[in-house]
Each structure stands twice: as C-alpha cells, then as structure tokens.
Simulated scan of single mutants.
Amino acid sequence: MMGEKQQHLPWAPLLALALSGFICILTETLPAGLLLPMSDSLAISEGRVGQLITVFAIGSVLTAMPLTALTQTWSRKPLLLACIAGFLLFNSITAIATNYTVLLIARFLVGVVAGVLWGIVAIYARRLVPYELKGRAMAVAMMGTPLALALGVPIGTFFGNLVGWRFIFAAISVIAAGLLIWMSLNMPNFEGQPVGQRTTLKQVLLLPGVRSVLFVTFTWMLAHNILYSYIGPYLTLGGLEARVDVMLFIFGVTTIIGLFLVGVLIDRHLRILVLSSLTIFALAALLFGLYTTTPILIGISMGLWGLTFGVAPTLLQTAIADVGQASANVAQSMLVTAWNSGIGIAGIIGALLLNDYGAASFAWVMLVLILGALVVSGAASKAGFSK
C-alpha cells in the first residue's frame, strides 16, 4: 500500500483527487452557465433554475460538519468511493429528471456529498506523502477547482447550449463512473481516526488557530463572491457587457497561474503567501473601486483577482489541516461550511448592494472585508498562519 514514507509525489492518486474536485465544482456551478437552456427545457423561470445552485450549497453547509464528525472513524477509501458514487447517482438523476422537485432533491443530496468530499480530499492528499511534500500534494489535489472554473464551466456551457444540458450532466456521470472504477482498483486506503481519539466539533473549534482560519476563509469567500456572483452588472459600468467572457478568461488564466505558484512555495512560505495574496486582493478591490469605467485597468484587476483566488483553496486547506492536527478531517468540514456560507451570504449581500447602491459599491465592501481578513491573518502568527 502506498503510504506516508513515499519520497516523491504520487501523481496518479493526486490527480484522481483533483478530478474528484473538478467533478464537484462542475456539478455545483454548471446550472449558472446553463440557466437559459434549463429554464426553457423545464418551463420554469431562470430564478428557479438558480435555486438549484442554492440548494446544493445548503446541502453542503447543513451537513458537512455533522457528517464528517460522524464518519471520522471510517476508513478513508470506502468513504471517498461513496462520495464519487454519489456524484454518479445524483448527476444521473439530474440528467433524466423532468420534475422540478426531483431536481431540487437531487441537487440537495449531491450538495451533501460535496460537503463530505471536501472534508476528506485535502487530508487524503497529505497522507499520501511525507511532511515536506504535504503542501505540494495539496496544490495538485486542489487544482481541480480552478480548472473547473476556468475551463470546465465554459466548455460545459458551450456544449450544453449546443447539444443540450442533460447531455452535460450525463457526461459528468460517465466521468464519475470511470473515476470510481479507477479509484476502487488503484487508490490506497488509510484508516480513519481511532475511536478513542474521536473529537467533538466544539473541541476542534477551540483548537488554537482554527477560528482565525475560519474567519479568514469566510471573509475571503464573502468578498470574492460579492463581485463574482454579479460580475456582469459591474462590467457594464465600464462598457464591457459584451466582453464578460474575455474578462472571465483573464480571471481563469491567472487563477491557474496562481495555483502553480502556490504549489512551488507553499511548503515553506504559507504565511507569506496568505498575507501577500490578501494584499494583492485588496489592491485589486481598490482598483475595481477607483476605475470602474477604465477597461484596461479593469482587465488588470481581473488578473490580480484571479491570481489570488487560484491560491486560496490550497492555502486555506493547508492552514486548517495544520491547526486541526489529529482532527484535521473535522476541521476541514468546518472550513467547507465557512467557505459555502461565504458564498451563500455573498449572493444576498450582493443583491442588496446592487439594488440599493449599484454595482460600483461592490469593490468598497470587498476592500473592507479583505482588510479585516488581512488583520486577522497577520495577528495569527503563533497559530493559524504561523509558518
């Protein structure tokens, strides 16, 4: 069995974990890109299609922590396989469902599966390698997220509009089936936490550094998604309503660049990377606020913003794994909850800001949030962001 004494990156299992993350993010976000064809096909409003994303997030937020705590003693491989099987099952149901209620139930349940998956993937990656390679292994395992956002969603949207949205969800099921077969044959297994060492959510929350990492995660994702959820109205201010795809492409490319940079540096410079990423994000927010009508500076800001988002998942999951210690799986589930809570609340705050103050207000709220995260991460030098 492949274990923790291995002195090089085990690329095959790490890429399998990355593919599982890719499937997860693609499953979550595709309805946003397929809003119109799904609305037409199901004869429902675009707003009701949008709720398919909302119920996914609700499923993750409500169940990630309790289910991860409940399964912390389980062997890791069977739990991982169960998650992949869940994506296969519920995406298949989504592909064939004609009833809106059935779709909502399937989306809620696949959100539950996603919450459990994110609670184990990062720790699985770290257990595959020795200590000095843990950060790099995390970076590889986490690259499915930016790749799904930068490439998977646009490609899925294009083909969904071309051949039908049901075909795309069916295609995700086929990919999940292939991954399930490969993992069942080749993925190494690790034991869960010993029963005598099982910890409660409260015990994990009180560990030094955990609350700091969770606060930074929540504010980072809140700030990010206020703009990301309503990027169209903001770009309209600069006359870029016909160039949303170009701006998101810039964002996606720099997201991938950020991911590769963090893979090289994270094992030695986690604290510096977190502080510098938040500082660059704050600079991007400032530029977004000052130059709402200047396309070239908006493009530069999109690039800086993407660079910082590309590093966020790996940095934050590495930080929570470090402070979570033996209870890292439970700590990861808390991070998943904080992450998805930030996404959900950002949608509400963004809508209120757009209606009451206009899209130009997004940047200034983002800046305040990021400065708060910067202060907390800077103060967490002994526990949270200490290396």
Score class of each variant (00 low, 15 high):
Gly33Thr: 06
Ser45Leu: 03
Gly111Tyr: 09
Thr337Gly: 03
Ala69Gln: 12
Leu335Gly: 10
Ser212Leu: 05
Pro31Arg: 08
Gln193Ile: 13
Ser361Glu: 09
Ile155Trp: 04
Gly192Pro: 00
Gln317Ala: 10
Phe309Gly: 00
Ile266Pro: 08
Arg126Ala: 05
Leu109Pro: 02
Val253Thr: 06
Trp118Pro: 02
Leu109Ser: 05
Leu316Ile: 12
Leu290Thr: 04
Val116Thr: 04
Leu151Cys: 13
Leu265Arg: 15
Thr217Tyr: 10
Tyr291Gln: 10
Gly306Val: 06
Trp364Ser: 01
Gly344Pro: 10
Val195Trp: 06
Leu369Asp: 11
Tyr228Val: 09
Trp165Ala: 04
Leu9Gln: 01
Ala351Val: 14
Leu235Tyr: 09
Gln72Phe: 14
Thr145Val: 15
Thr217Ser: 10
Asp322Gly: 01
Ala338Pro: 02
Ala57Phe: 05
Leu42Pro: 01
Tyr234Lys: 12
Val253Lys: 06
Arg211Glu: 01
Leu235Gln: 06
Leu52Ile: 00
Thr199Pro: 00
Pro146Ile: 10
Gly156Val: 07
Gly342Ala: 07
Ser229Val: 09
Leu147Asp: 12
Pro188Gly: 00
Trp118Thr: 03
Phe281Thr: 05
Gly238Lys: 06
Phe218Ser: 05
Ala328Leu: 10
Pro233Gly: 08
Ala282Gly: 00
Leu89Gln: 05
His8Lys: 13
Val129Ile: 10
Ala351Asn: 15
Val365Ile: 14
Lys387Val: 06
Ala326Lys: 13
Ile349Leu: 14
Met221Lys: 08
Phe260Glu: 01
Gln7Ile: 06
